[in-house]
Design a binder for these strands. Structure first.
Lengths: 212, 212
DNA sequence: CGGGGCCTTGATGCTGTTCAAATAGAGTGG
DNA sequence: CCACTCTATTTGAACAGCATCAAGGCCCCG
């Protein structure tokens, strides 16, 4: 609400191409990129690291909107203010670009990008809604692991988020998350090396349990 | 999937203004306006009655996307096909308009309308996601009753949807819906006349229970 | 070596589901 | 208009899944 926008140094590095006119900003793990209820003047493109968006209710309950990785665009809002806040899950760099003319429809490079990002956001939010509506804890966790794995090239997947983040994304508790992960590992579907790194041993089995 | 688009008679009534070029179509209670997985060629504006959008999963579980009333626009999709189907909750009329050029960004009347409708849809889907994520059955029902009441002028609110529709919207069962409505009525917060008509007796109390 | 998060594991309880049955209500034909 | 049927809704009782509460273990880092 009352947080100041990041101050941009005059000699800050500037991107070219579609993001010409943007400014590169760096955030440390845990730092806030923008706050809930803050004016939505800027949109951001992730170029390093990963980010979560969070909605906090008055009674303290927390809902994670989504997790964003390199290439994703965040900060697109329907109204004038951010409905979610954004925090860095890891150290990260973003390109920040001023939204030219509010949400009004205008031809132009930036508007076109906002339009595309809004459409993408709608699709992701719909998927998230379907996930929260009618799925068991096991299905939720299985689909989550699948979605994350699909975004990674390599065999091993690194989770940038905590169990609490996963819980607040899926509408569960950390204990339930932990138990479901344990069960999936016991069944040989996935294999963890430490708590933040896993690989999928039986993709077919995992997608069956996801049961979309 | 394989359903044909509605056949438009040559002399069908045509609207003017923003919806110039659209065709008025009439559907009976229960009829399908468009199907899940069908090509999304048209967008629709509700001019009479009410409509639900539905997503059906392979295992039969059903999730209601949203409920739409006069003035709302439905059929806007991110991809090329409908992710939800739309069915008439009551007899209803819609204006159907062809999407000019896919989802590509182009200046123009229809594109501008699609853009605005997409933004509205995103906001509604976000609210729905937050509702499904972390709310008790009582909170879900209270918020639902509030949202519906906000859309009506008069003292009494008519519910066009069944208990099953409410349940599939809120991610609950019909029994739980019925019990929560009973509890709210016993507490004097709402008052039903028959199962599809109610009025809010204590708005402050209702919004407290909604606890957004 | 010690401290402090974060994560896991176990025991217990509550919320919402499931199964079953009764009741109310809407539609239909006599 | 009434009786009948079929569906929608309500209500009750038992159950299941996930939450809550409470320890205990792991790991990172000083």
């Amino acid at each position: 609400m009352s947080q100041l926008l990041p101050v941009v140094p005059a000699d800050a590095p500037v991107a070219t191409g579609d993001w010409a006119g943007s400014v590169r900003l760096t955030f440390r793990r845990g730092e806030e990129i923008y706050a809930q209820d803050e004016d939505a003047d800027l949109i951001y493109r992730v170029v390093r690291g990963s980010i979560r968006t969070t909605h906090l209710q008055s009674d303290g309950r927390r809902q994670i909107g989504d997790f964003y990785y390199v290439g994703d665009i965040i900060g697109v809002e329907v109204g004038d203010v951010h409905r979610f806040s954004a925090e860095a899950l890891t150290d990260c760099d973003v390109l920040a670009l001023r939204r030219a003319g509010s949400t009004a429809y205008e031809p132009g490079r930036v508007q076109q990008m906002i339009w595309a990002a809004t459409a993408t956001e709608l699709r992701r939010t719909q998927s998230h809604m379907l996930l929260l509506g009618r799925a068991t804890a096991c299905e939720k966790v299985a689909r989550f692991l699948m979605d994350i794995a699909d975004r990674f090239r390599g065999e091993f997947v690194i989770l940038p988020m905590s169990r609490q983040d996963m819980a607040d994304y899926l509408g569960l508790t950390i204990e339930t998350i932990s138990r479901m992960l344990g069960r999936l590992q016991a069944d040989g579907v996935i294999e963890f090396s430490g708590s933040r790194k896993y690989r999928v041993r039986r993709p077919g089995c995992l997608s069956e349990m996801a049961a979309a």
